[in-house]
């Protein structure tokens, strides 16, 4: 699995399409966090929602980077299409964790906030939640499920905008709403953990759905 992830990483880096989502994340994060004051948890709402969009975009890039014929070679080499998809999901998750690190550190380094361990934990949970949800949306909008790029882009845009905006729709909207308020970070941690669990379940469902649809296309 490590060799497979390593290959995917090399192939994605060679393809250079990853640059756009990373640039988007960096620019939005910088614009909204430089010289920002106030509650750190409020600022993390920006990090988390930007990460949602970036991870959706990056996941589509990772899954779509390889031509279908080349993908079938990979699946024979790796011993199954499921393993190839699993490697892609793990790579997406790893990149999500790296971006999450930047999302946590940027507001602290570039703004003026009073912060503690609970703020960091709340920020990490909220961003991980958004990263996992972004991966879930990305994988069902990839070529494996939606073969035509136009529809894929449209679907991804609609879902990635709707998910954080529909009031009360778990797992992202309640988290962002709560983090925008003034509750102390420590009190939010249990709820954030529950929502993270929900997002993991949603992502697992989306990956399974993708696997199912892709195997029917093959």
């Amino acid at each position: 699995m490590v060799a497979l992830i390593r290959y995917q990483l090399a192939a994605v880096v060679h393809g250079q399409r990853y640059v756009a989502p990373l640039l988007f994340f960096g620019i939005v994060l910088t614009v909204f966090t430089v010289n920002d004051g106030g509650l750190l948890t409020n600022t993390y709402v920006v990090s988390a929602s930007t990460l949602l969009i970036s991870m959706c975009w990056l996941t589509v890039t990772i899954v779509n980077h390889e031509d279908p014929v080349r993908r079938s070679i990979q699946s024979v080499t790796a011993g199954g299409a499921g393993r190839v998809l699993a490697a892609e999901m793990l790579l997406a998750l790893l990149s999500g964790v790296v971006l999450l690190g930047f999302g946590l550190a940027f507001p602290i380094l570039l703004g003026q906030h009073r912060w503690g361990g609970a703020d960091l934990a709340a920020g990490a949970l909220a961003q991980l939640n958004c990263a996992v949800t972004g991966i879930a949306i990305g994988v069902v909008c990839s070529r494996l499920v939606v073969p035509r790029p136009g529809w894929s882009l449209l679907l991804a845009l609609v879902v990635v905008i709707a998910v954080p905006l529909i009031p009360g729709l778990p797992p992202v909207n309640p988290v962002l709403t709560m983090m925008s308020g003034t509750r102390p970070a420590a009190e939010m941690l249990p709820t954030l953990t529950v929502h993270l669990a929900v997002s993991i379940l949603v992502a697992a469902g989306c990956v399974a759905l993708t696997r199912h649809v892709a195997s029917r296309h093959d």
Partner: peptide, 11 residues
Amino acid sequence: YVPDRFPAADA
């Protein structure tokens, strides 16, 4: 497995 073509768009 060797397919009938080897699409190559990568660097």
